[in-house]
Structure formats: structure tokens, C-alpha cells
Design a protein around this nucleic acid. Structure first.
Length: 567
RNA sequence: UGGCGAGUAGUUCAAGUGGCAGAACGCCUGGCUUUGGACCAGGAGGUUGCAGGUUCGAGUCCUGCCUCGCCAGCCA
């Protein structure tokens, strides 16, 4: 079955994206002895977002599809920015997304000893040297895109001298920035990254795992490939900006004494989403400037934000599989993510009636004081979800939007003289309204047809609309937040603009006086429920009376209104 | 300015190694329905960045050009 456009297939021999094709080819020619091992390597210096999810899903799915393994490995080579609590949060988020690292959490810092030994090997081979130049001088002597760099005056030190100096660096004899260890490659190389890259820098800093054991720390380039090799990674998958690092990645591994195969780096395009930003810097700015309530604000594209918002992990996984991988930068429409949330939630979320903007409805011919329990399916898509009972009485609340005194064309809901169905209740016909001093509709009057309790009229007459309701005397009260796009512009910051300029000032609208049917009490903290006809809402984990709108239902009437007003 | 990477419906991706340019989301029509939801059926939407060339035949191969992204941290 599926091939084009649905890369989630795991049938061998099926065509797919360039990464899967590569792995299949490796498998066929025995490159890694039939092994497939990947890794997800975040730096523990912030929270994971939907862009990371793409990488997580790719790496773990690849391993699962080809019978391999995938590890979570923290790239913790820079003690200045990293923290243990970030690492813990990342582990939690990966688990929440639905993946388990095959060997628990691994750390680049676990390889500091091995990395150090490899560095000494390189020095002994005359391929690395200690440079006394400061950062500014190194930068100046690197040259430019069009001009070659200049050799450091310390480039030709003997291996003995380099070894001595490097050991003294490690022993703490020098201050931060006083010396670095550099690879001895080619200061005129057309790839700037090959112009004697820095391997170690001095940082007298406490590391969140190794404490004060080290005062020299490996750079990303020196640590990454070797960490991959150390743990047996076959396919090291990273984003496009590391493309230029690949020759370096290979150079190091080619000049070291490895136990196993040389891992292979492959790059793919990172994810962008419309009406959002994903750079760490912008996300941090949103939090620090108070545009959102924190890293787990439901408007944030962080996994914690999406979780609080009610996005099911499965929907995120399916989304990531659907968008596939390529080497072209692009921006996915946020509507696609939402459509995956709807698809999943439609199958799994229980239904409840909630009225967000209450309008009193009085049924004139329904006996005062009478209450009957109406049965309603928990989920029409899933009979095994059972049913609940909702109290029905003479005075109800309906949605203010479901009534119009003077209805325009194509408005099928309640209006004077018109009959509609109350969901899981009876047919009612509007007989009139009560208005307040300002002439606003304060209450709608109607009569009900006791013969329509089955949902159908015995005489076969039809109604065009079914609306939701709650019994006024039995309703619970609560609050709901309606979210819109955080950024009004689909591409915030495009053409050099400041993304913050397009912040949507109305991205969170609080509804303070929503009314719920009593069975809303069954909804657990964090659980997502469908408010019938309105959308999916997640009960806040900490504030039980608060619901976050995950995503609305498709709204045909809203679309008609939009079209009419556009005319 | 040098190097590398990339250009296929609005968007994201497909289209063994030259053989009828497709899917999903979005949009439009219709059907069905106790959610104007879901579901079902259909439709619109393409000069495959541009210009040449090779070939019976080019999204795919060749040449030139254009546009976009990344690279001059002791960040990752």
C-alpha cells in the first residue's frame, strides 16, 4: 500500500526518503554488518520543541523500522549553558512523545576520558597542536571566504612540547582562553571549518555531571563524531547547517584508532511552522518579555506547551512521519499539525456539552421542578466508550451564537418560530424572547415536543440544526481559554522583519463564565475532551476549572459568515 | 566575494538507475448525519526556477544563468 507521501511504511523494499534509501542500500551492501543505530543528541540547555520532535521521531522510527536501536545522548560539552534540570526535562519530554532510549540516557561527558586519549593520539601523530594565540588572533588569522588563513606561530611545535602543554592545560596551569588545542589540517582549506579547528578550550567551570574534574572541554566538532563512534552509531542524522561539518567529522574519525565502523553523518532540513518561531533565542524572548506565561504556555511550540494545550503525542508522531524528510528548507502550515490533532482526538476524546457564552432558554410547556436524565454517547466514534447521563429541565443554557432574532440566509439554528433539536434531548420551537433594558436578548422562550425524545419526530418532520445545551440548575461553572495564532504573520520575521512585530495581541481569550454539564467532572486533569460542536479542550493539570482549547472543530457556519462578509 | 547544499500544485512531500507529473493538508461541489463535527464521492489547482542541449522520449542526463539557505564562535 502506501508509498508516495506516506513515508511511515516499514515494509522492506518500499521506496522512501533519501535517508531510508541510504540505509536500505547499506543493509544491502553490508556496510555496517546489517546494523542500524541512531541517536537523538540534544544539548541540555533548554526545552524541546516541535522541531526536535521531527528529529526524535526520525531517529527512533528509523531504528524501529530497520530492527536497530536508538539512544538519547546529551551533547553536554559546554558547562556554561547546560543544566541537569534541562536534561531531566528533555528525558521526560522524549518519554512523553512515546519513545524510550535503548540504553537509557547517555552523555558525551561519559566519553571525556576517551576523547582526551584520542586528543593525545592526534598530538603524537603531529596532527594537533597547542596554540597560544587568543580568540581574537585566531579569528583574524582564519582568513575569509576568499582569502586563505595564516598559520599560527605555534603551529610547528614538536609533539613532545604539545603533549606537555596539553597536559598542563588539563592540570589547570592556565587561565580561561589562554591556550587551545587545535587540529593541524590546512589553514588555506576552502572549507573554513577545516582551517585548524579548535578541539579543546579552557573553562574553569563546574560541569553538571563531571563537576570540577575537568577544566578543559571538547568542542562540538571534536566530541560529536567520536561520541557516535564510541557508542556504535551507524547513522548520525543531523540538520542541514552541519553539512559543512561533515568533512571534519570524517577527518577526525579517519585519523583515530576506532574500534568499529566509521559512522556516517547525514543531514536533513529542520522544521519550520507557520505562525510560529522555533529558534531558541526567540522562544526565550517570548518567555522573558512576558508575551507568554512560560515554556509550557499552550501557545508555545515546545513539547511542554503542546502537551498542556492537549496535543496527543500520537498526533505529533503521525505529523512528523507525514511531513517526511528532505534536504530543502521549508515551512509546514500549522493547519497540518492541527489536522493530525483533530484526527486523533476525534477517535479518542469523550464528548461533553459545554456552553461558553450562556443564553437562558425557558421551555414553557416543560413542568417546573421536573428533571429527567438524558443518555448521551461518550463518543459516537467509539461505542466502547459508553454513555453518560445529562440532566434536562425547564430552564437551560444554550450558546448565544446559536440564537438569532433576525437570522440571515443559511443560518439554520434557533430563531423565532423555528424548530431545532437539542442534542440528546427534544425538538424545541422558539416562541419568543425577553429583552433587557438595552433591548438585548436576555432569555429565549420555547415549547418542546415530548414525542421527539428519541431524537426523531414521529411524523417524520426534520430540523436543520442540532444545538448543545446544559441544564441551568445543574450546570457546573468553569473557564476556558480560546487560543489563536501566537503570530499573525504566517512567516514571522520574513524579509528581515522583527518577528515580535507580528505578535497577535489576541492570541489567548479567556472565557470566564462557561457552563458545563455535570459529567464534565469525570474529566481528569490533563485529559482532552470534545466540547460538542465547539472543539477539543484540555483540562489544565493544575487548575481544574480551566480548559485550554487544543483546536476547534471545523466550523462550516464560520466559513459561510466569512464568505458573506467578504462580499 | 569563495565553498557547499537546494529549487516539482497554496503548503509539505512522492515520482527504482530517462517512460502517462501524484498524495496529504488547505480550498470548492455534492451526499450522508441526533455535532454545520466525523464520514463518503467528486472538482479546481503545475510552463517541474529560467534558457539552451542530448534523446523516439527529460522533473530525471549535459551546459550556462537566476533565486534561496548554510559556512569566517574557544556555541551546538
Amino acid at each position: 500500500m502506501s508509498s508516495a507521501g506516506s513515508p511511515q511504511g516499514d515494509e522492506p523494499g518500499e521506496r522512501g526518503d533519501f535517508i531510508r534509501n541510504l540505509i536500505r542500500q547499506n543493509l544491502a551492501d553490508g556496510t555496517f554488518g546489517g546494523r542500524v543505530q541512531t541517536r537523538f543528541p540534544p544539548e541540555p540547555n533548554g526545552f524541546l520543541h516541535i522541531g526536535h520532535a521531527k528529529s526524535i521521531c526520525l531517529n527512533f522510527d528509523l531504528a524501529a523500522e530497520f530492527g536497530g536501536t536508538c539512544n538519547l545522548r546529551f551533547d553536554d560539552t559546554n558547562p556554561e549553558t547546560e543544566r541537569a534540570d534541562y536534561a531531566a526535562a528533555i528525558e521526560e519530554d522524549v518519554r512523553w512523545l512515546g519513545y524510550r532510549s535503548d540504553r537509557g540516557a547517555l552523555y558525551a561527558s561519559d566519553y571525556f576520558d576517551q576523547l582526551y586519549r584520542w586528543a593525545e593520539d592526534l598530538i603524537r601523530a603531529g596532527l594537533a597542536y597547542v596554540d597560544d594565540q587568543d580568540a581574537e588572533a585566531i579569528s583574524e588569522n582564519r582568513g575569509s571566504f576568499t582569502e586563505p588563513g595564516a598559520d599560527s606561530p605555534w603551529r610547528n611545535r614538536t609533539p613532545e612540547e604539545n603533549l606537555d602543554l596539553f597536559r598542563r592545560m588539563r592540570a589547570g596551569e592556565f587561565a580561561d582562553g589562554e591556550r587551545v588545542l587545535r587540529a593541524r589540517i590546512d589553514m588555506a582549506h576552502e572549507n573554513m571549518l577545516m582551517r585548524d579547528p579548535v578541539l579543546y578550550r579552557i573553562r574553569h567551570r563546574v560541569h553538571h555531571r563531571t563537576g570540577d574534574q575537568w577544566c578543559i572541554y571538547p568542542t562540538y566538532d571534536w566530541a560529536h563524531g567520536q561520541s557516535d563512534a564510541a557508542e556504535g552509531v551507524t547513522n548520525s542524522i543531523c540538520t542541514l547547517e552541519f553539512d559543512a561539518h561533515r568533512p571534519l567529522y570524517d577527518w577526525f574519525l579517519d585519523h583515530l584508532d576506532l574500534l568499529g565502523d566509521r559512522p556516517r553523518q547525514t543531514e536533513f532540513a529542520r522544521l519550520n511552522i507557520t505562525h510560529s518561531v522555533l529558534s531558541k533565542r526567540r522562544l526565550l524572548q517570548l518567555v522573558e518579555e512576558g508575551h507568554v506565561d512560560g515554556w509550557d504556555d499552550p501557545r508555545m511550540p515546545t513539547l511542554r506547551g503542546l502537551r498542556r494545550r492537549g496535543f496527543p503525542p500520537k498526533a505529533i508522531r503521525e505529523f512528523c512521519r507525514h511531513i517526511g524528510v528532505a534536504r530543502v528548507d521549508g515551512t509546514v502550515e500549522v493547519e497540518l499539525l492541527e489536522s493530525f490533532a483533530r484526527r486523533e482526538l476525534n477517535q479518542t476524546a469523550v464528548r461533553r456539552m459545554a456552553v461558553l457564552n450562556p443564553l437562558r432558554l425557558v421551555i414553557e410547556n416543560y413542568p417546573e421542578g421536573q428533571v429527567e436524565m438524558r443518555e448521551a454517547d461518550n463518543n459516537p466514534e467509539d461505542p466502547s466508550a459508553g454513555a453518560r447521563k445529562a440532566p434536562f429541565s425547564r430552564e437551560l443554557y444554550i450558546e448565544r451564537d446559536d440564537f438569532m432574532l433576525d437570522p440571515p440566509a443559511k443560518f439554520y439554528r434557533l430563531s423565532p418560530g423555528r424548530e431545532v433539536r437539542l442534542r440528546s434531548g427534544y425538538f424545541v420551537t422558539c416562541t419568543g424572547v425577553e429583552t433587557d433594558a438595552d433591548g438585548n436578548v436576555a432569555e429565549v422562550r420555547c415549547t418542546y415536543d415530548p414525542e421527539t425524545g428519541s431524537g426523531q419526530a414521529p411524523d417524520g418532520r426534520k430540523v436543520r440544526a442540532t444545538i448543545h445545551w446544559v441544564s441551568a440548575a445543574h450546570a457546573g461553572e468553569g473557564r476556558a481559554v480560546l487560543y489563536e495564532r501566537l503570530f499573525a504573520d504566517p512567516h514571522p520575521g520574513a524579509d528581515g522583519a522583527d518577528p515580535m512585530e507580528s505578535l497577535n495581541s489576541d492570541s489567548a481569550r479567556l472565557i470566564g463564565n462557561a457552563r458545563f454539564e455535570p459529567a464534565m467532572a469525570d474529566i481528569a486533569p490533563g485529559q482532552v475532551v470534545q466540547f460538542e460542536r465547539l472543539g477539543y479542550f484540555a483540562r489544565d493539570p493544575d487548575t481544574p476549572d480551566l480548559f485550554h482549547r487544543t483546536v476547534g472543530l471545523r466550523d462550516e457556519w464560520a466559513r459561510i459568515q466569512k464568505r458573506q462578509s467578504a462580499r
